[in-house]
């Protein structure tokens, strides 16, 4: 997994609540047996109209906005456990998702793919959204090592929580499989005693 330490980018605002993983990647695109290429169908039914023409009003198609940080409404990633959602976001080129709340399974899936979910207060989410919406060139700084997010050039930093173990994994590019396999002896011991 690619290492993640700090990240600075412009951001795309998507202030819709309860964005479920069916919107992030609709089920009809889950027939693939590998992880590659899901980005082209990210938010497929919001990015494109029924006749497959581009939906100009959708944030990802709005020429004013660009960058690798997505700022989304409350409860992002709810619904289906499909990791294809995290693969699609990462494959599209996103590195950070900011929301005031993330669904559990999505959060884990994102972290397992080097995509950082940054949970902020509803008030700060509003601030970030209005900063980006009023000036699309606004850059956002996400510092994982020091666990803060800020508008570049502003003194105000908002700290965010992350599981210390997961932080270590992201910073070093480790993943859970290596760690679990290193614990085989303990796992076999557990099997014998239970």
């Amino acid at each position: 997994m690619e290492k993640f330490i700090t990240h600075t980018s412009k951001a795309i605002p998507l202030p819709i609540e309860n964005i479920d993983t069916d919107q992030i990647i609709p089920a009809r695109f889950l027939k693939a047996t590998n992880k590659a290429g899901f980005g082209k169908n990210l938010f497929r039914d919001w990015r494109y109209k029924k006749d497959d023409s581009v939906n100009e009003s959708f944030a990802l198609n709005d020429p004013r906005f660009s960058g690798t940080i997505l700022i989304a409404g409350n409860n992002f990633g709810c619904g289906s456990s499909r990791e294809h959602a995290a693969w699609a976001l990462a494959d599209y080129g996103l590195k950070v998702i900011v929301s005031s709340y993330f669904a559990d399974i999505f959060k884990g899936n994102a972290l397992n793919n080097g995509l950082l979910p940054v949970q902020v207060s509803p008030e700060y989410l509003k601030e970030l959204l209005s900063a980006v919406q009023s000036d699309p060139d606004t850059e956002i700084v996400v510092n994982l090592e020091e666990q803060y997010i800020a508008v570049k050039g502003s003194d105000k930093k908002e700290s965010f929580e992350i599981d210390p173990y997961k932080k270590l994994c992201l910073i070093n590019g480790y993943d859970d499989i290596d760690f679990l396999i290193s614990k085989k002896d303990k796992i076999e011991e557990f099997e014998l005693r239970s």
């Binding site: 990791e83 399974i105 859970d176 499989i177 614990k183 796992i187």
Partner: peptide, 18 residues
């Protein structure tokens, strides 16, 4: 509970989850 595919691989490899 439901898990993502990375976790499916973890359970395949170790019968455990973190």
């Amino acid at each position: 509970f439901g898990i993502g595919t990375s976790q499916v691989a973890q359970v395949f490899a170790s019968q455990c989850l973190l």
